[in-house]
């Protein structure tokens, strides 16, 4: 009786030590899988907005991800609905679409058709209009807009300017 309760105590003591050790080990394992600081300190990308041609999609790169930049033609600018205006970025008197070039469904890169002025994602057939707003399922929302700040004729990706904050507040982008 005395013996078995002593064994019971040893069992519990061992369980407690092992439990602490297991939690500590899991924590270390989780942290080992985290992105490295060098990866997280990803730089900022500065775009010179005066260099783009109308209705010609250019793919830039930010944090390893493709960024779509599309300068609107005056005709495209005149067609914008209220919702589309909300997604538009104006720099130096011209209007642009600047979004992440990754489908909001599962992350393929949609392709732009300059004649039809729209995007098609070949992976599961989603489509977007020229402002990056979704026009056919399965994507759940329009193309996401990266954090940006307007500085004169340039756009700094990765920094948060007032225009971006407003888009976030109104739910135009995530």
């Amino acid at each position: 009786m005395k013996n078995s309760s002593r064994r019971g105590f040893m069992g519990k003591a061992f369980g407690a030590v092992a439990g602490v050790g297991a939690v500590a080990a899991l924590y270390a394992m989780k942290k080992t899988w985290d992105p490295l600081p060098s990866v997280k300190a990803a730089g900022f990308t500065t775009l010179d907005m005066s260099a783009y041609k109308e209705n010609e999609l250019v793919t830039e790169k930010w944090r390893g991800k493709p960024i779509f930049v599309l300068k609107y033609t005056p005709e495209m600018m005149s067609q914008l609905t209220e919702k589309q205006k909300g997604r538009t970025i104006s720099v130096g008197g011209s209007d642009y679409m600047v979004t992440l070039g990754l489908c909001t469904h599962l992350g393929c890169i949609p392709s732009y058709n300059a004649d039809e002025k729209g995007f098609l994602c070949a992976c599961h057939g989603g489509t977007y209009d020229f402002t990056g707003d979704v026009t056919k399922l399965p994507p759940p929302r329009g193309l996401d807009i990266p954090p940006f700040k307007i500085e004169g004729n340039t756009l700094v990706l990765g920094e948060v300017g007032p225009e971006y904050s407003q888009m976030k507040e109104t739910g135009i982008t995530l």
Partner: peptide, 8 residues
Amino acid sequence: EWIRGDYV
């Protein structure tokens, strides 16, 4: 990002 260890 945790699974990938990076943004992409």
